[in-house]
Simulated scan of single mutants.
Amino acid sequence: MTTRVRFAPSPTGYLHIGSARTALFNYLYARKTGGKFLLRIEDTDLARSTEESTRSILEGLKWLELEHDEEIVFQSNNADKHRATALKLLAEGKAYRDFTPKAEASGQDVKAVIADRARQNQGEKNMRDNPYRELSKEESDSRAAAGEPFAVRLKVPETGKTVFEDAVYGLQERDYNDTEDLVLLRSDSHPLYNLAVVCDDIEMEITHVIRGQ
């Protein structure tokens, strides 16, 4: 098996020291194992991604002499593939439409919103309380056909766990009870990072993910 690693920055700012360190670790691992070092620009956040940031990242990698081995992948170019994957999961019953009305902007920044949500949910363990999770296919299809806005969420199993071997930390287990139904597509059908990163890693045949903790 040929080692294939990737450096996948978001072009929402300049290349900083932490990102450069991650790129270096990936580059060195690829060179040590005779593998491939790939570059993917994760520009799914269209509102914050800029050409200037992309240019800064590319110039920084060039200055560091961290040369990628294949053509650069821009994640936004794969949006149609990401949407198709979400719809496939929906058809297979592995995802569902969430018709929860979009909350109005509060004026808070993203970190403040996340902190408030964490405080509100403190002590709660039920990750499956979305009222649309068990909506019948007929009603879900009918509401979607009528033009009602919806997001698409991953339908995480109620029981069980994911088990995998981490090359650094060893055996890892993640209980499904502690995993929320992640949003895959926003109500405007824009794919989110949660979906895009997995689809692209599979398509690029990534064998190892090396990143900061």
Rank of each mutant, 00 (worst) to 15 (best):
A151T: 14
L154S: 10
L64T: 08
R119A: 15
A103M: 10
A79K: 05
D43N: 15
Q213W: 01
F150T: 03
E71R: 05
N126K: 08
R128A: 11
D175C: 07
I206W: 02
R133E: 02
T100G: 03
E71T: 13
D181Q: 06
Q75K: 04
F74E: 04
T33K: 12
P191E: 07
R31T: 06
N77G: 15
N26R: 05
E59R: 11
N77V: 05
Q108R: 14
H208R: 14
D43T: 10
Y193M: 04
R211M: 05
L87T: 06
E59H: 12
A118R: 15
N130I: 02
S136T: 15
E165A: 08
A151E: 09
P191M: 11
L61S: 15
E59Y: 13
Y14L: 12
E52W: 13
D69W: 01
D69S: 13
L135S: 09
L64V: 08
T100E: 02
K102Y: 12
R40Y: 02
E138A: 15
E138H: 09
R55L: 14
A144S: 07
G93C: 01
R211N: 00
L28E: 04
T44E: 05
A115R: 10
K102D: 11
I210E: 00
I17G: 07
F37R: 12
V183I: 15
F37Y: 11
T44S: 11
S189K: 12
C199D: 10
R153P: 02
R211Y: 00
D181E: 01
S189E: 14
R186P: 00
S10K: 11
N77P: 00
H68M: 10
D116T: 14
I57D: 05
S56D: 15
L39S: 08
Y169H: 12
D116G: 13
S10C: 09
R48Y: 06
I202M: 12
A146P: 06
D80C: 07
A144I: 02
G123L: 08
P149T: 08
K102L: 06
E51R: 14
C199E: 10
G123Y: 05
M127C: 07
Y132C: 04
P101D: 06
E71M: 10
A8M: 10
D181M: 09
R153G: 01
S140M: 06
A144T: 09
D141W: 00
